[in-house]
Design a protein around this nucleic acid. Structure first.
Length: 572
RNA sequence: GCGCCCGUAGCUCAGCGGAUAGAGCAGGGGACUUCUAAUCCCAAGGCCGCAGGUUCGAAUCCUGCCGGGCGCACCA
């Protein structure tokens, strides 16, 4: 049971009695006390009474004695609440022995499809894929932990016109040579070589065109070569996912080709519904409210003039499949902000077609760009895109140097693990700790800093706690009687009881920076506690209680970072 | 032209209608015979892009500007 709701419920009763109707007591954390309620101010006009009077009456009626050690009316009519230490102890003690840390699984579990990562076959993964993969992974982890049925959908770019040239290039190289090149992860040069030939050589271009036709026509040889390309690329992507430490597996590849068989039925259905219109040579749907450069209605191109299907058709087929066949009620698209309009249009059409109707909803989980220190899109010195694996390798290398430098006692054998956790964690945390809608500046120094809102700072707080338990020769706490006395314990306790509220908030908004911010505040508050409250040198019940506080803090840090996809080393 | 997103401390970012706008970094001053100082504490730093409006109350909501980024028909 979370404290904020407990306080709100008690106040709500008093408010509704005083106001003669339901009132949201607007309870929130306060600088002037532990919590404050602001509802008396907004009620003043409605009741025609001074807000302080209302607040005073509320305090007279509300049953808060068991929860609060002090309540007062303050300023123009704020109600300030100081939470009683015994109440904190009573909330925390069961939490400390609960495997779920007091966070219940959802009472209304949904089937959620998370569409994310989506690299292109035979192309290198670059920084552009980082945010989608990291944010999508966090969404999957958090929603799964809350008991939802989560379907990971890696919408691989595995179909379309580029495959004509890629397959022809594969043939030129010879299958075994091509497979070798792809398997060592040299996708960039493979793709670029194909591209160069395509642009420079008309004969090659013509072969590529014919190959596309063969591919779409289901030619066996062509399909076999296409599968080879896809399989080698998938193998490579999986190594990147492994290095990144995300949950995506070979079972989560639902590339564009997966929907091929559904495109004709989807098109027919759109036609039957009267939504499909001929526009020149293409078959289009025009959702209302979208206009283009020329002021004319903007289409989703379902079937192109060459008879092939547009990507809009694939996106529509995917929605129909996900709601109709998979029974999904929440469709998440973790895709960059530039594609916002496209997805809004797709959703609009899907709603018109009846494939996306309540309770099912689709949400575009958009995100900004990663910028370099110059404030422009992050690029390599040569101006090209930066290989994701290169970035990850550098993170681990930098973290290893840091670990050696900062903790000379750390055995060399442990450094690799720590470097991986810290390096990869730093990159992910930098991504998840700021509002995802905004661009952010990629900065090694900052993300690997041991101070501030960074992964290493949180990991350090966790490692410190684990160190206490190592030193004490203790494992996990199995029984806890937490009693709060010291102000630093009080401050820590207030953060600890808040975990569930934060997690269920992020369940709705998928604003992971709020979870990150919470974890940072928790770690910082723990540091204060650590400075002021000896644990192992305390005695008896105080020692046991503080150990339980430490254990609970460590487990929330561990769980919270896990939900963000970040590892927590035992020592660092 | 239409649409979307962003403008908060020197820098990087929080702040989801409420009290004196908060962190971290950088710069200044302190704290290691003590559970990891990879830490902590103190001081300093702000016409919240600008102008109106709504409200008892606006960084937050609305409108209009200014500045930056992005999208707008057969690539995804």
């Amino acid at each position: 049971m979370n404290l904020e709701k407990l306080l709100a419920d008690r106040l709500a009763q008093a408010f509704s009695a005083v106001a003669g109707g339901p009132v949201d007591p607007v309870v929130r954390r306060s600088q002037h006390a532990d919590y404050q309620s602001d509802a008396a101010l907004s009620l003043a006009r409605r009741l025609g009474r001074p807000p302080r009077d209302i607040a005073t009456e509320i305090l007279g009626q509300a049953e808060l004695a068991d929860l609060c050690s002090a309540v007062e009316v303050s300023g123009p009519g704020f109600i300030n609440l100081t939470v009683a230490d015994p109440a904190l102890g009573a909330l925390l003690s069961p939490m400390a022995v609960d495997a779920r840390l007091g966070v219940a699984v959802s009472a209304a579990p949904q089937t959620v499809v998370v569409d994310y990562s989506a690299p292109n076959v035979a192309k290198e993964m670059h920084v552009g894929h980082l945010r989608s993969t990291v944010i999508g992974d966090a969404a999957v982890r958090l929603l799964e932990w809350l008991g939802h049925r989560v379907i990971k959908a890696n919408h691989l770019g595995d179909w379309g016109t580029p495959f004509g040239m890629l397959i022809e290039h594969l043939l030129d190289l010879g299958e075994s040579e091509a497979a070798h090149e792809l398997s060592v992860g040299d996708l960039d040069s493979f793709y670029k070589a194909a591209r160069v030939k395509f642009d420079a050589d008309d004969a090659f271009k013509e072969r590529a065109r014919r190959r596309v036709v063969a591919l779409q026509g289901g030619d066996e040889l062509t399909l076999r070569l296409w599968r080879l390309l896809v399989a080698e690329s998938e193998k490579y992507f999986l190594t990147v996912y492994d290095q990144l430490g995300v949950l995506l597996t070979e079972q989560d590849f639902y590339g564009e080709s997966y929907y091929n068989d559904m495109l004709a039925p989807v098109t027919d259905e759109l036609d039957r519904l009267g939504l499909l219109r001929d526009s020149g040579d293409a078959a289009c749907v025009f959702p209302e409210g979208f206009t283009g450069r020329d002021g004319q209605p903007l289409p989703i191109i379902v079937r192109k003039r060459d008879g092939g299907y547009g990507y809009g058709a694939t996106d529509l087929a995917a929605i129909r499949h996900r709601t109709r066949n998979l029974g999904a009620t929440r469709l998440l698209y973790v895709v960059g902000l530039p594609q916002r309009q496209h997805f809004e249009m797709v959703y609009a059409v899907a709603r018109q077609a009846g494939w996306l109707s309540p309770p099912a909803v689709a949400e575009h989980i958009g995100f900004g760009s990663i910028l370099g220190s110059d404030g422009k899109m992050l690029r390599s010195r040569a101006g090209g895109s930066i290989k994701l694996v290169g970035l990850l390798d550098e993170a681990v290398t930098r973290a290893a140097e840091l670990a050696r430098q900062k903790n000379p006692d750390l055995p060399e054998a442990a450094i690799a693990d720590v470097a991986r956790a810290v390096g990869i964690g730093a990159i992910k945390y930098a991504d998840l700790s700021t509002d995802r809608i905004k661009d952010y500046v990629f900065d090694w120094q900052r993300m690997l800093s041991l101070d501030g809102n960074t992964a290493p700072y949180l990991q350090y707080a966790h490692a410190r706690i684990r160190s206490i338990f190592r030193r004490a020769g203790l494992g996990q706490i199995t029984a806890a009687s937490i009693s709060i006395a010291h102000p630093a314990e009080h401050a820590l306790a207030l953060e600890l009881v808040n975990f569930g509220t934060v997690v269920t908030g992020v369940e709705q908004t998928l604003e992971f920076h709020r979870l990150a911010g919470y974890l940072h505040t928790l770690a910082a508050t723990f540091s204060g506690f650590y400075e002021h409250c000896p644990v192992l040198r305390a005695e008896g019940e105080v020692r046991a209680s503080r150990l339980a506080l430490c254990d609970l803090t460590a487990r929330i840090l561990h769980r919270g970072l896990y939900l963000l996809g970040i590892a927590t080393p035992e020592r660092m």
